[in-house]
Design a protein around this nucleic acid. Structure first.
Lengths: 138, 138
DNA sequence: TTCGATACGCACCAAAAGGAGAGTGTCGGC
DNA sequence: GCCGACACTCTCCTTTTGGTGCGTATCGAA
């Protein structure tokens, strides 16, 4: 009945009762990972890495399929985390551009492995999905 | 007034009107990335990489802070994508365990760079956030 | 005999993600 | 003189995400 509640309680307790000093660091790392391992962040990062400095609209066009709202939000978060620098040129009409910082470039390089993996193995993933569906339905 | 609508329409049109042959592949890669660049997927991947074969409950305890529902969902998706193998031992009480496939291990290795980045630079990210907040509020 | 353990599925609900559309202010081109 | 471009912001609205709690089957232990 409440077996699961206790099981999950234990699950949580175990991870909270053992704070091996570096618990704060691990939490931070997780937070950073969760933030950064975002679809749009990855895509924007890629766009900026490939094209260098980009304006808001350019960036949206290159990424493709992103709404203004999400583009604004993603770029703001990246700026906040020190991944991009936002430069406002006070002219009319407004001109704002975004450039990767060193931190951003490093992250982009780190993500490179994942991109390569996806490009290398997407066929295998598709095959696995087909096989899974057939096993389920067939 | 409807300037933006047109701008965004153009934004989308551009990316949809130019299908440079590898458009399908890019779409697939993006889909795979979006799937795989998930917080829980990364965490489970890490747990399995570090501990080898794990049971459902063990996995939850190691990842920490994940609900059953999300753990089930994450593991199912990973199985579907060919990242883990799910083995059911038909005993009572039930015993199910999960192991990374070669594909999963490759992905884990690819993510290694991101983990390293996060561990290396989390302090910089924190600093950037503080600076951003001070610039905004102060 | 009743409880605890296992690995879930299901129903319900709250919160967050994300899209659509309108509005803003100014300028240069038609 | 009016419209389009820029880089947004703001307000709805829908979809997705994720948590909680309950139920299940069966066995061995208390």
């Amino acid at each position: 009945m409440h077996a699961i509640r206790e099981a999950m309680a234990t699950m949580h307790k175990r991870s909270e009762e053992i704070p091996p000093v570096s618990k704060a660091v691990e939490s931070l790392v997780r937070q950073v990972i969760a933030q950064v391992a975002d679809k749009w962040t990855m895509l924007v990062l890629e766009a900026l890495e490939e094209h260098g400095t980009l304006r808001f609209g350019e960036c949206g066009r290159i990424v493709g399929g992103i709404s203004q709202k999400m583009l604004t939000k993603t770029l703001r978060e990246m700026e906040r985390d020190g991944l991009v620098v936002r430069t406002v040129h006070p002219v009319i009409p407004p001109h704002v551009d975004y450039t990767l910082t060193e931190l951003g470039r490093e992250l982009s390089a780190a993500f490179c492995g994942v991109w390569t993996w996806a490009e290398t193995y997407h066929a295998e993933v598709s095959a696995a999905r087909r096989a899974f569906r057939e096993r389920e339905e067939g």
